[in-house]
Design a protein around this nucleic acid. Structure first.
Lengths: 205, 205
DNA sequence: CTAATAGATGACTATTTGGTAAAGTAAAGT
DNA sequence: ACTTTACTTTACCAAATAGTCATCTATTAG
């Protein structure tokens, strides 16, 4: 009952895009409303502040990302192949996003986290929560690889932290240099961290 | 001749601090002037905009950082020991800065770069320039380590990129999680990337 | 058909912000 | 002493921005 609307979703979509393409601090309510094609009155009907929308936007983008992660890290393939595919996908998708948006954008969580961690604790918590979820995909993969004997015995939590931070560091560098090619180092880097010669080759498609 | 002043330096110091402790986008001219204890008229006497000061602040902080880097990476010690010391120092200094400022702050260049790369190209260029300078210290060290036979033959440029991005990624995670302990992974991570068992132990002080 | 509900709209206010300019002041040159 | 130079200070304006509210409109339940 009552009037229907998808203004809330338009606001969430616009916020995700703007935070990814620009930054959090550079956004104003007016800019967000314009991008969302929603009037300011409606903004304040659904959200009480930019911070409120920003936090909701992080949950929103996760629901878009999670299915892709589930597919890429699907246990239907052996762990090292999953990892190799993820790293390959990171490179290809970075190129694709750069073509669509005009420049490399990197990881929406990591960028925002680096920006706001000291000034917006609530948003920082939310971002850390999302990054932890993301990291779990790597951890599950590495744990299984050790269990399979695909890689030597090692502290899997430690290896996960190292690989994950490397991954985020490289993607952020790719954004800063606006150069997807930086991500070509990822497979070599992962192999070294996991103490193997190289990750498995992956067949096309 | 004419009236003397150190307002310009106060503005630079304040800007460096604020960009490190907070972010670029959250700063206003008024906030910067208040921190610097300088009136707005003087701000516009020395700088034409926040962007202008931001760029100058990056050069300014480099002049403070460079002597410390020169000391830590001094060729008076063997390369792997230099590296081990740098990673140890990163951990200790992060703790110290956290104690002084109330939270982990990370790398001033990387944080700002991640935040503004898509919206302030001039500042992004300056940040990239500083990061490249920083990276050269790692590259020189790794190159010498290979030449010495301290680590196996490898593509030193590639190894440098990997190690550097890992370093920045970890430091940024430490900021986001407000936890210096994350940096304890650095020596293990470096050893894996450089294909050695472990970095040399370093004596106290 | 009508009332109740959910949302849309636009006009409005108060504040913050970036930016300017004119008058003032300290230091050094002559 | 006084003039020039280099910087400071204050007051000010215009634009941008956050946030509110009364009124309007679409949807559905009864």
């Amino acid at each position: 009952m009552g009037r229907t609307s998808n203004a809330k979703n338009q606001l969430l979509d616009a916020m995700v895009l703007l935070m990814w393409e620009r930054s959090y601090g550079s956004l104003t309510i007016d800019v967000i409303c314009e991008k969302a094609e929603v009037k300011k009155g409606s903004f304040y009907y659904f959200f009480k502040s930019k911070l409120d929308l920003g936090i909701a936007a992080m949950d929103h983008v996760w629901t878009q990302i999670q299915p892709r992660l589930d597919a890429t890290f699907s246990p239907s393939r052996p762990p090292l192949e999953r990892l190799a595919r993820k790293l390959q996908e990171a490179y290809e998708r970075t190129q694709q996003v750069a073509a669509e948006h005009g420049c490399v954008l990197g990881c929406p969580f990591f960028n925002i986290g680096a920006e706001i961690s000291t000034i917006e604790p609530e948003l920082a918590d939310k971002v850390n929560q999302m990054l932890s979820r993301f990291q779990r995909y790597f951890e599950a993969t590495i744990t299984e690889a050790v269990a399979n004997g695909d890689i030597p015995e090692m502290d899997t939590k430690e290896a996960t932290r190292i690989l994950f931070n490397l991954y985020e560091g490289m993607i952020t560098q790719a954004r800063m240099k606006n150069d997807p090619e930086i991500l070509k180092d990822l497979p070599v880097a992962a192999a070294r961290i996991l103490r193997i010669q190289q990750l498995p080759e992956i067949s096309v498609a």
